[in-house]
Structure formats: structure tokens, C-alpha cells
Design a binder for these strands. Structure first.
Length: 311
RNA sequence: GCCGAGAUAGCUCAGUGGUAGAGCGCGGCCCUGAAAAGGCCGGCGUGGGGGGUCCGAUUCCCUCUCUCGGCA
């Protein structure tokens, strides 16, 4: 029996994934599933740099603008949503082409998520209270007692992960480090290819600056001002551009400073993305050459996997 | 032109007679229900140029160059 094929196209922010993905999708009869933790949110098109409507008309895109920004979203929901779309695409003989920059999301699709409990707001509130009362070292020691493995792995300052580990332990009575070993990925049924786009660092940073400029000229300020009228979820608020502009609106800093911060934070983000991808040895790296068009890059990738998709 | 202040990391600036730090930036890394988040590590340097004093100068002295104030 033929294995089901799934293709991933990842890369740092602003590298040009969307345009390349559309060219590629056309060549291989694919539909695009966004793999981006922020582009799932609707009415945030400009801050999250979603593919334009003309682009979305060319190739069907999934998981863009599907959640209200006042709602929370997370990996587990993403996996569920994405896998369900994936299966529908298989029924229609379409290849799922995952495109995006969220490292955790694509790896969760491939490698699976350990079965566990969702966030429990009450428990978290209790742990947060302990955190403010007794400090992070206390929580870390507490974790060390019930789950020494995790405590060793998680730095005492990384309170988010300490809290998550404690939460899981409190709900299940089992250490998260044990549960985490139990993940079910795509396995043998599927055949996957992962491509990561990159270019030299300075060129990437120039692209990021350009993108930020473009965001501003397409009405970022107005957009964020409108968004801030609602109580955005803690996840949606994380989109780069929201807090920086909020600081400007509140008079904490100038507009120029807000823009500078958006650029800096985007660079840092891109750097972290690259660190994540580098670690994944399954990735085929595609280095974009100077002046190479999206179509040309897509062609190179297509050549690389033509035997893969024709089998 | 005169007087004063200054010239130290990519930037803003500390500090010291025994060849230097901090914040930001920059680089590297970690990551399983907030992941565009969160966390960890790394100084990346001809101390403006040239002399002098001293065992030893980034630090003290002289001089030149430049920058910023003030007076002309």
C-alpha cells in the first residue's frame, strides 16, 4: 500500500514561505495547511502577515483566520484541527502542504503529542499564587520532589514549564517526564518531507525590516488600535506588534520606538526559529539565492521531490 | 579663536596605576496544552593618534585630531 505523503515547508519569519508555497502547491496538486500559531487568528491579517486574498484564491489555504482573537488556542487544538484537515485532503487525493514557522506545531504533527490533560485554570492560578508568595526556586524544588527528571531539565527560571509540569502531576499523579515519552507520531503510514528555507542572516534581517515597513504602510496602527478594543486572549496578544504598539498608545514610548521594537523582536523570533529547525536533522535546507524568485525556489524544491510525489 | 566637558564593545555609558565592565544590540542553545510565548549561555575590545613618567598606563602628564556645550 502506498504511504500517504505530507510535505512541510518551514522557515524563519519573512523569508517568503507563502509565495513559494503557492507555486509549489500548484505543481504538486496540494492544498496548504497553515502551520502558524498566530495566523489561526482572524481579523489580525496585518499583524500576523497572512497570505493575501489573491494568494489564497490561487490555492486553498486551511487554518488561516479560523479563531476569534479573544479565544485561546494551543498546540493540542492545532494538532486536532490540522489532522482532521489532513485526512480530508487525503480523501480528495490532495497532498497536504504544511506551511509556516511555528516549530512546535509542525513537530507535534510529525512526532505527536503526549496524551495529557489540558490547561486547568484553577490549578494554574493556585500555582501562580505560590510562585508570587514563595518564588520560583520553591516551585522548582517542589517539582524536583515529584519529578526529578523534569526538574533537572527545566531551569528554575523557566516558570512556565515548571508550572505546566506541576499542573500535569497534580492532575494525573504522574510526572510529565514519563508521560512525554509516550507520544504517537505519524509513524510508518505516512511519508514526510520537510523543507526549510533560509538565506544569509543579513538578507533575512533586511527582509524582516521591509516586512515591518510594509505592515505599517498597510495600516498596522489602525488595525492594532481596533484589536486592542477587545480583550484579546493571552495567546493572541503574543503576536509581535500588539504589545509594542500598545506601549505607543499608552505613551510609554514613541512610534519610532514601537517600530524598532517590532523589528528587534521579529529578528529574535527568526533566530529562535532557525535554532529550532537546525536541530531537526530530517530537514532539507533550501538556501534562497540572491534575486531568486519564489517561482524559481519552488521549482528547485519541486525537482528535489518530483520522484517523491509521482510514486 | 578662547574657556570648559568628553573621546572605552555595534549603540548608550560605568570603572580602575596591574591590559576592562553594564544595559541594549549581536551570536549560540533549550523547548510537548501561551510557542510570534518562555528560558539558558557567550564580551564580540588596537580603551581617538603620538610622545612622556612608571617595573607596569585605559587610568597620571604633554601634544595632536575630533565631538559637544559656553564665550567671542
Amino acid at each position: 500500500m502506498l504511504k500517504k505523503k505530507i510535505i512541510f515547508l518551514v522557515g524563519p519569519t519573512a523569508i517568503g514561505k507563502s509565495a513559494i508555497a503557492i507555486h509549489l502547491a500548484k505543481k504538486i496538486n496540494a492544498e496548504i495547511i497553515s502551520c502558524d500559531s498566530m495566523q489561526v487568528y482572524g481579523s489580525m491579517d496585518i499583524v500576523t502577515s497572512q497570505p493575501s486574498w489573491p494568494q489564497r484564491k490561487k490555492i486553498k489555504h486551511h487554518l488561516l483566520s479560523v479563531i476569534d482573537p479573544v479565544k485561546e488556542y494551543n498546540v493540542a487544538r492545532y494538532r486536532k484541527d490540522a489532522m482532521s484537515i489532513c485526512n480530508k485532503l487525503f480523501l480528495r487525493n490532495k497532498i497536504p502542504l504544511f506551511v509556516g514557522g511555528t516549530g512546535l506545531y509542525y513537530s507535534i504533527i510529525i512526532d505527536g503529542l503526549f496524551p495529557s490533560v489540558p490547561e486547568d485554570k484553577l490549578i494554574r492560578a493556585r500555582i501562580y499564587k505560590q510562585l508570587s508568595l514563595k518564588g520560583n526556586k520553591y516551585l522548582h524544588r517542589k517539582l524536583a520532589k515529584v519529578d526529578p527528571l523534569s526538574a533537572k531539565k527545566i531551569h528554575p527560571n523557566d516558570t512556565r514549564r515548571i508550572i505546566r509540569a506541576l499542573e500535569v502531576y497534580m492532575k494525573t499523579g504522574l510526572p510529565i517526564s514519563i508521560l512525554q515519552k509516550n507520544r504517537v507520531g505519524l509513524g510508518n503510514e505516512y511519508e514526510i518531507k520537510i523543507f526549510a528555507l533560509n538565506t544569509d542572516r543579513q538578507a533575512l534581517y533586511n527582509k524582516i525590516d521591509q516586512r515591518v515597513n510594509k505592515m505599517f504602510s498597510s495600516g498596522l496602527i489602525k488595525d492594532v488600535r481596533r484589536l486592542l478594543k477587545h480583550k484579546l486572549s493571552k495567546t493572541a496578544t503574543c503576536a509581535i506588534g500588539i504589545r509594542e504598539l500598545e506601549g505607543y498608545f499608552n505613551g510609554e514610548h514613541s512610534l519610532d520606538e514601537a517600530k524598532r521594537l517590532i523589528q528587534v523582536n521579529s529578528r529574535h523570533y527568526a533566530k529562535r526559529q532557525l535554532t529550532w529547525f537546525r536541530k531537526d536533522k530530517r530537514i532539507e535546507w533550501v538556501n534562497i539565492k540572491k534575486k531568486e524568485t519564489p517561482g524559481e525556489v519552488a521549482k528547485r524544491i519541486y525537482k528535489f521531490l518530483s520522484s517523491f510525489v509521482k510514486e
